[in-house]
Amino acid sequence: MGHTSPILADRRTTSQGRTRLAELEDNQVVQRFLDGEQRAFNELVYRYDKRLQNFVYRTIGDRERAEDLIQETFVRVYRHIHRFDQTRKFSTWIYTIAGNLAKNELRNRSRNPLVLFQSLMKNWEADFRPLEWEDPKTRPDDLYRKRFLRQKVDEAVSLLSEHHRVVFVLRELHGKTYEEIAEITDCTLGTVKSRLNRARNRFARIIAPMIK
């Protein structure tokens, strides 16, 4: 039978009889926000915060700066959401904004190169953190190997060229389709495929010595 139990129906709707925001598609949440429901924007932030954080961090390699750029992304979304074409996917739109901000950041950085204090500290932590602070149940050589592998994998991603890195991160970590990646990065499907293939090859070549 296709009936929904009253309890389930209650859980799915608010007291005003509207479907709960968490159960709506992105575009429906956007529409709710445009209809004047301010809470709908909070829902969008909650849905995309972590994903964008990982995407931008992987693209620019600096968590602190990635935080700023994500905030900027959400502010831009907030201010221009009325311009969003609702026949498209919201996730593609927000990733495009974040990706463009990350690209600008990398461009600015290449104009004004500087050594980031955070990256120095990251290396310091990896090299000099005493082993006795680690979980005693795990063997130190295992820990060392895992930490080393993690570091190398991070390094491998950062060694990819910007074009390859963005495509690789979007596909492998965010599960975007080729079409979505093409739209976010503003290039053709063929370009996406070849970049992804090269990125994977390069990534594998860098980390291969660390993996049995």
Partner: peptide, 14 residues
């Protein structure tokens, strides 16, 4: 190698 590398990356996500 690809699978292991990607799984390490995914485990590291914020």
């Amino acid at each position: 190698v690809i699978r292991t590398g990607v799984s390490v990356l995914r485990a590291e996500e914020a």
